[in-house]
Design a protein around this nucleic acid. Structure first.
Length: 511
RNA sequence: AGCGGCGUAGCUCAGUUGGUUAGAGCACACGGCUCAUAAUCGUGUUGUCGCGGGUUCGAAUCCCGCCGCCGCUACCA
């Protein structure tokens, strides 16, 4: 049994879930769904990060305890993912007991191994922020947030000896050239490591909203330091070594480029220090950008200024376009690993051309002709059809692309098959022919639709299931196993084909 | 400043180790078809491949310089 463990970052609860979060989560979801479809034993983890001074302050502003506050804000994320049909197997919250247990065990191990030392942290401290700044952060020596003076402060902190891992990290990078992808991001992290590593302060005494340090109850861990460990919390580190051994270290962390350092430098070093293998793979995606000159009315905020990506909620888009359309666009429009442009215009264009004109229309026209020429009953496909090779090619290309974390390529390959089916219908014009003479071509077109339903299942689960039912099939595409289920066969023959409403009604393009 | 990346058709981008007339999708134009969501199929137009030099029989692809944009250079969710 092949196992596949994929994670998103755990999102900081002070943010409202926005399109950037959704981009990462939907990509991870689709990849996880693909692996389930090929029969891998799959574990897909997401969650929320709930500690730190900013959360404690926000709770206070709202007049509730941090716990009450994070119950509320964490739920916004789980609700957002439900709304996007995200199939996470687990949802870890850093305020859960199991996380405290794992963090305690993991960090105690690092402490016992001698990589955590007490030292004095000296820095420039803003009392209002309750936070330290480096001289570069300051504006004319003043706090960049409050514009007031900062004071030189000292705090006794525990430090993780990151510097001790420089050579081991470099060695790890060299032995595992594909551990961090894309290569450009790997190089960025590696050059940072080669530039020399300093120890990092990992505890705070100035606040209490955090995981307590097991060997010194005056301290709590710095929020980032407990957050990364969530990936082991879900496996039951400390409680269930067998389960950890089952899933670790063959994990795939999908992360955004803004948190490379924590995942590609700190985290592997922390694992080494705790005597745990570093994660097998970290895949860094880019950002969706909103901007340029092409601002539509719907992308302008109340003040008439351009909307930021972080102001776009997934729900506002799914209400308008539908869940699967948004999922499709997030997966198809931007190659994972590069930045991409997001716009309503681009979304509308892709919706109309790919979803309405190509996929939706293919399903509709085939169903109609099957109704008129075959009495609505699916004929058997033609084993000699030119579409056989096109379908096999699509399955091969899509598999390869999903394997490489390239959803956009997987979907592109699937749409080439849709195009081939539309072209084949034009070649044979079954709507002109007498009933009985068109069984081969219509059976083949239906078989393509069935295979397409399977191939889009990771990206558009609801649409996939709807097509499945329209083909007269019971169960769900998710019960099928690729690649076998995508072989050219006659599982449809004799089933009743349902016409149904347009899957993706065309939308007016923005003027 | 140092290191790294990018600049290819109106738009979004592909272009493997340099090799025949530089590609795809969308948009656009024309033609076909009318089963289908004014969908679909076919054909076609457009590019000094950022600028200037150089190496080569031959460069978008290698080298040098320049212009423009961007990322990283530690405690930033």
């Amino acid at each position: 049994m092949t196992r596949f463990y994929i994670t998103t970052p755990i999102y900081y609860v002070n943010d409202v879930p926005h399109l950037g979060h959704a981009y990462c989560t939907v990509n991870a979801d689709a990849i996880a769904r693909w692996h389930r479809l090929i029969g891998d034993d799959t574990l897909f983890l997401t969650g929320t990060d709930e500690h730190g001074a900013k959360v404690a302050e926000a709770a206070e502003e709202h007049g509730v305890t941090p716990r009450e506050w994070t119950d509320r804000t964490s739920a916004r994320f789980s609700e957002a993912w439900e709304g996007l049909n995200v199939s996470n197997d687990d949802f870890v919250r850093t305020t859960e007991t199991r996380h405290y247990d794992t963090v305690r065990d993991f960090l105690q191990k690092i402490y016992d191994n001698g990589f955590i030392k007490k030292d004095t942290y000296r820095g420039l401290y803003c009392v209002s922020c309750e936070d330290y700044y480096t001289p570069d952060d300051l504006n004319d020596g003043m706090c960049p947030v409050h514009g007031r003076g900062v004071v030189e402060m000292e705090e006794d902190n525990y430090f993780f000896q990151l510097s001790a891992f420089q050579d081991r990290l470099i060695e790890w990078y060299e032995k595992n050239p594909d551990a961090i992808r894309p290569a450009s991001k790997r190089n960025e992290a590696l050059s940072f490591i080669k530039g020399g590593l300093k120890d990092v302060s990992i505890t705070r005494t100035s606040l209490s909203w955090g995981v307590p340090v097991p060997w010194d109850d005056a301290h709590v861990f710095y929020v980032w330091y407990d957050a990364l460990i969530n990936y082991l919390t879900a496996l039951g580190y400390g409680e269930d070594p067998e389960n950890v051994a089952t899933w670790w270290p063959h994990v795939h962390h999908l992360i955004g480029k803004e948190i490379i350092r924590f995942h590609c430098v700190w985290w592997p070093a922390m694992c080494m220090a705790a005597g745990v293998e570093p994660p097998a793979n970290i895949f860094v995606h880019g950002w969706l950008l909103v901007g340029g000159q092409k601002l539509s009315k719907s992308m302008v905020d109340d003040q008439g200024g351009p909307v930021k990506l972080t102001q776009i909620t997934p729900a506002s888009l799914t209400e308008d376009f539908g869940v699967d359309a948004i999922r499709y666009h997030l997966l198809r429009n931007t190659p994972l690993g590069t930045d991409g442009e997001f716009s309503i215009e681009g979304l509308t264009e892709r919706y109309n051309s790919d979803l309405a004109n190509n996929l939706g229309n293919l399903v509709a026209r085939v169903a109609t002709v099957v109704a008129s020429k075959c009495g609505g009953t699916a004929p058997a496909p033609d084993p000699q059809s030119p579409l056989v090779a096109a379908a096999a090619q699509a399955v091969t290309s899509a598999s390869d692309a999903w394997q490489r974390f390239a959803p956009h390529e997987a979907l592109e390959a699937t749409w080439r098959l849709i195009g081939a089916a539309n072209a084949e219908l034009e070649n044979t014009e079954p709507w002109k022919a007498e009933p009985g003479t068109v069984d081969d071509v219509l059976g083949s077109a239906l078989e393509v639709v069935r295979i397409v339903a399977l191939l889009i299942a990771p990206a558009m689960p609801a649409t996939s299931l709807e097509i499945w039912h329209r083909l007269g099939l019971s169960g769900s595409p998710e019960d099928e196993r690729l690649p076998g289920a995508a072989d050219w066969g006659n599982s449809l023959a004799g089933h009743d084909v349902i016409k149904g409403d347009p899957l993706f009604p065309r939308r007016k393009t923005t003027p």
